[in-house]
Design a protein around this nucleic acid. Structure first.
Lengths: 244, 244
DNA sequence: CGTCATGTTGAAGTACGTCAATGGGGGTGG
DNA sequence: CCACCCCCATTGACGTACTTCAACATGACG
């Protein structure tokens, strides 16, 4: 049974997504091709492939990752509900990274060809797509700065703080706590660190009562300390963010 | 004297930009607010500011850079003719990085408010904006992978090869040669390396007859060797790329 | 002819990576 | 209920690619 766009779970409750006009809801209903449920450990989009689909994550988490020819892996970003994935293939013709799930996941499926329809008939939604691409571009510039310039403890503080904020935005975090269904290896690959060094640095952050990752839970214990460690501006847009 | 959009220098000759319909040219003429000429060393867009303008680079080069609170600097990307800058501020409200010139530069100026007009009246141009944002997102994901996973010599090989390809796309490179109006410090900051190590690594790449940077010129001597060093897929889109 | 910016070089320190072993929890099968 | 395995977290020892410091060289410019 497919979720109705007029009753999208992401737009309910305290989440930071704006509501749509009825015409926009009707449009989304029309282009929604279906719903996809997948298990943990599933490859959704494959590097080098040419997927005709775009997805919006309704629930569940995963990683966007890029595998180099040596087998080195970079986690580009963690994937959370509300994320729109596949735009690069939709726009550029071929995926240059993969998306893999780490939990059960439910996704909305759209056909790539309908993206163009959106630009001609629903400019506000099209603008939202651009907004999201620009937001992701901004995030990646920040990630590049952190990985390029900061030492291990600050990278980790930044990465987990950013994850927490994103989880909070979609109603998945409260009081410093959130689910973190990833391995230390995933975190290491996201921040350009080795597994061993990530493990040891995580331990010291735990001892310093700053944050802790255990049993798949992330606990931010000292927001102030992280703000001081992280050299980038962590202020977030206060406005609602779009969703496709 | 301002350049006419119908005679845009970027769309002439062997450059990889598509031509526009006459309606599109008329639209561009209408929203073009003016032209800006600046000297080397000029800050165009400032981190933390709220510029009401968007720019397309007509000629000249520079850097997009992010300064951390410690003073550490990350060069996010080199800026070349054809680049569209200011979208993040245009879409998200505030610049999170700066753009600075390293040569004389001429830019087309647009008002941010006209971006919305473009989405309502010229969907194809709006789609092009999204295409460019997705392309930049792709580039940054690749940069993150390289900085996160590869050793110094491969980072440099990747960075300079990518620069060469981009320069070639806009007709500024031939036979392995192109202008490179940046300091070693800029390259180091782009790749997350120290100046000293960048210098020594550049020297070894020169001795190995792979590439050389001297007197503001970049010379790619051995494309094949670079392809082997660089662990990412260097294939480029063969289609024409958009320009705003 | 001094000053400034950039490139170059050597020496010394360290944050990080690699290697390798251990331990624990959760499945699965006997 | 135990035995086995697999995946992942943890720990210690060791090596090194990188950073930092500091000095010097070069050319442009006024």
């Amino acid at each position: 049974m497919s979720t109705d766009c007029g009753n999208c779970p992401l737009r309910r409750d305290g989440r930071r997504f704006p509501s749509l006009t009825s015409a926009q809801v009707a449009f989304m209903r029309r282009i929604k091709a279906g719903e996809l449920h997948v298990d943990p450990g599933t490859q959704l989009l494959m590097q080098g492939s040419n997927s005709p689909q775009l997805f919006t994550v309704l629930s569940g988490m995963g990683v966007r990752e890029k595998t180099l020819q040596t087998g080195d892996r970079q986690v580009i970003n963690f994937v959370l509900p509300g994320d729109f994935i596949g735009l690069q293939a939709g726009v550029m013709g071929e995926m240059q990274h993969s998306v893999a799930t780490t939990t059960d996941m439910t996704l909305c499926v759209f056909n790539r060809t309908d993206l163009w329809t959106m630009f001609t008939s629903e400019p506000e939604l099209a603008f939202n797509v651009t907004w999201m691409a620009a937001a992701e571009e901004h995030f990646l510039g920040e990630a590049l700065s952190v990985v390029g310039q900061l030492p291990a403890d600050r990278r980790i503080a930044w990465g987990l703080r950013r994850f927490y904020d994103r989880a909070e935005d979609v109603g998945l975090a409260r009081d410093g706590w959130t689910r973190f269904p990833f391995r230390q290896q995933d975190l290491a690959d996201a921040l350009g660190l080795s597994l061993v060094h990530t493990n040891k640095t995580l331990q010291r952050l735990r001892e310093r009562q700053i944050l802790s990752v255990q049993n798949g839970d992330l606990h931010i214990m000292d927001f102030g300390a992280i703000d001081e460690m992280v050299e980038v501006d962590m202020t977030r847009a206060t406005e609602e963010r779009p969703l496709i």
